[in-house]
């Protein structure tokens, strides 16, 4: 069974951490992944940096720009990860924008992911209909789960269509925004979390965007299965490098 599906069966709230590969230093990737697993994180989203990350706020943008400047690219990331399954067993998800995947070759990319032991992909700008028409069969062939996003503006009809097309979990964007820490969640978010919970979807939801500490993690996972932290962890890396990753994780839950 795919590691993501297995993990989702555990009876507790899950914590996922995102970081940008090649940041802060080009060769930090493996150590960050290992330290996150040791700290008790449930799954990890490894960001493939892109020059024009439309859905991201300033923190992740800057980390992407820096990672590219450090020399990160798709082939190098695969090279860094080639032995990762010798030391790491939690689910690994690659997150990036579609163009670098397209240039690498979608099938070749998926095959490489399978070889390494990547469990899923999040490609925010690969739309549902294009995925279903052109790429679903390739993803399935290589055992990759494709994770879709929903937002507070996504209609119920579309949420259900996305649920239908999903296996694993649904990435629930907490508010109408790009990535980055907010002040916390208000009534609007609570109503949205309730609304989605009441749809009784087939797939569990993991909340992302705006989660930065124990309080926001707790709020986000009251109804949802888990939450994702990205920008707040990137900020931690900016300040501390690869030191103190377990301290960061421990203050979340």
């Amino acid at each position: 069974m795919n590691r993501i599906k297995q993990k989702l069966q555990e009876d507790r709230k899950l914590l996922s951490i995102y970081f940008t590969a090649g940041y802060p230093q080009l060769n930090d990737t493996v150590q960050i992944i290992q330290d996150l697993e040791k700290s008790g994180v449930d799954f990890i989203e490894v960001g493939l940096p892109f020059s024009d990350p439309l859905a991201d706020g300033p923190t992740i943008q800057e980390s992407s720009t820096a990672a590219l400047k450090n020399g990160m690219h798709t082939e190098l990331l695969f090279e860094q990860l080639k032995d990762i399954r010798k030391t790491v067993s939690i689910p690994l998800i690659l997150m990036g924008y579609f163009n670098p995947v397209l240039q690498y070759g979608v099938e070749k990319f998926c095959q490489k992911c399978q070889d390494i032991g990547i469990d899923g992909l999040i490609l925010p700008d690969l739309p549902l209909d294009v995925y279903q028409d052109e790429y679903q069969s390739i993803f399935k062939k290589y055992g990759l789960i494709n994770i879709f996003l929903i937002t507070p503006q996504t209609s119920e009809e579309r949420v259900r269509a996305i649920d239908e097309a999903s296996e694993g979990f649904i990435y629930m964007v907490s508010s109408a925004s790009t990535t980055g820490a907010k002040e916390g969640f208000g009534e609007e978010q609570a109503a949205y979390f309730d609304r989605i919970a009441n749809l009784n979807l087939n797939n569990p939801q993991i909340v992302g965007f705006g989660i930065s500490n124990a309080q926001t993690f707790q709020q986000a996972t009251e109804k949802a299965k888990g939450a994702i932290i990205g920008s707040a962890f990137i900020k931690h890396l900016t300040q501390n490098g690869v030191n103190g990753i377990s301290d960061f994780v421990n203050q979340i839950r």
Partner: peptide
């Protein structure tokens, strides 16, 4: 340019071999 995605559209665009927009 080569075929790729820029600003939400599939089109010809100038990019690196790695798919970064130049």
């Amino acid at each position: 340019g080569k075929v790729g995605i820029i600003h939400g559209s599939k089109t010809l665009l100038m990019q690196t071999q790695d798919g970064q927009i130049t």
